[in-house]
């Protein structure tokens, strides 16, 4: 089904919101407000935004660590202030400041973030099983970087999801670099989508810079899952613009990354591509674009100001007393 004008504007606006939050978080890291690290997802926004913009609130989502998941969690409904407050160790964070960057909100269907990469697959299958038992047509989406699809957990989970026709979506956010290693030297094929064939799971490759293309393929897979037709695999080809983590040397195989490749991909920036299309279609004007940009900037500025002013826990030891078991 074709997107309405409002839906197109929503996708575009979400791209801009994610970019502004990413920039806010880079700034927060460089000014010492984030005490650990930040893995910027600049240039990869279209994958999360395209996949998550029209999920139901009761759908489940396991997001990848890139960009600390903001291109998925912000879009699923987790406010920027809550995400930032969690990073700042504030009690207003989604995990009371305990998790740092592993954001989670079960009310929004975001069950948490795995420290071990590829750790989400089996959990997602378990949620798929629960969703199937409950019978309310919920879907369970996993969006992971391509590096994690080498994990054995993926194989085991695909067997389970395909055998039981679970409402799972596996989305490969292929940014082509695993840490500091080009993925082409550690993976035997060009397309991760090929992995679907062996399990009999429908798989597609899509341009991960094109938010509309991502949305279209993901929506088809969501419709299949809601119709009890089982899991799908979608590979979104994208590219990591920033180093693995902001501030780290930007190297590949121990040598500086060539700027030429980065520049090629910058020309295919997802915001620029969407802008061009929507201007051409007459969906947006230059004035609208500036308004959306200003609105997103204000949203993130305010979120950051409020989150930073939020209180810290008064007694950390009290938190640890409740650490192990449910009350």
């Amino acid at each position: 089904m074709d997107l309405t004008k409002e839906q197109k504007i929503r996708l575009y606006t979400n791209l801009v919101r994610v970019r502004k939050l990413d920039e806010t978080m880079v700034k927060a890291l460089l000014t010492g407000k984030i005490s650990t690290f930040f893995h910027s997802g600049e240039g990869q926004e279209a994958v999360g935004v395209g996949a998550c913009s029209f999920l139901r609130e009761d759908d489940y989502l396991f997001p990848s660590h890139r960009g600390h998941a903001i291109s998925k969690t912000l879009i699923k409904g987790l406010p920027a202030r809550i995400i930032l407050a969690e990073h700042y160790g504030r009690i207003t964070g989604c995990c009371d400041g305990v998790s740092g960057f592993h954001t989670c909100d079960m009310k929004l269907g975001i069950p948490g973030m795995s420290g071990t990469l590829g750790g989400h697959f089996p959990l997602a299958v378990g949620m798929g099983l629960a969703a199937q038992l409950r019978g309310k047509k919920q879907v369970v989406m996993v969006i992971e970087g391509e590096g994690t699809y080498a994990r054995g957990t993926f194989h085991e989970s695909m067997i389970m999801a395909a055998t039981w026709k679970l409402p799972n979506l596996f989305i490969v956010e292929n940014n082509q670099i695993m840490g500091n290693t080009p993925v082409k030297i550690i993976h035997p094929k060009d397309d991760f989508a090929d992995l679907g064939f062996g399990y009999g799971v429908p798989a597609k490759v899509v341009d991960g810079q094109d938010v509309f293309a991502v949305h279209k393929e993901v929506q088809t897979a969501i419709d299949r899952a809601r119709a009890d037709e089982g899991p799908s695999l979608i590979e979104c080809k994208t590219y990591r613009i920033q180093p693995h983590a902001v501030g780290l040397p930007d190297t590949l195989l121990g040598r500086p990354r060539t700027q030429e490749e980065i520049e090629v991909w910058r020309k295919r920036d997802p915001i620029k591509l969407a802008q061009k299309r929507l201007l051409k279609e007459g969906v947006l004007t230059q004035v609208d674009i500036e308004k959306i940009d200003g609105g997103a900037a204000n949203e993130m500025e305010e979120a950051d100001r409020l989150a930073w002013a939020d209180p810290m826990p008064t007694d950390p030891k009290e938190i640890l007393k409740k650490a192990l078991y449910a009350e």
């Binding site: 079960m106 948490g112 089996p122 959990l123 997602a124 299958v125 378990g126 949620m127 629960a130 038992l133």
Partner: peptide
């Protein structure tokens, strides 16, 4: 792992 997922989903 699926046990964890199912538990998180209320089972």
């Amino acid at each position: 792992g699926a046990a964890v997922g199912a538990a998180l989903a209320g089972y």
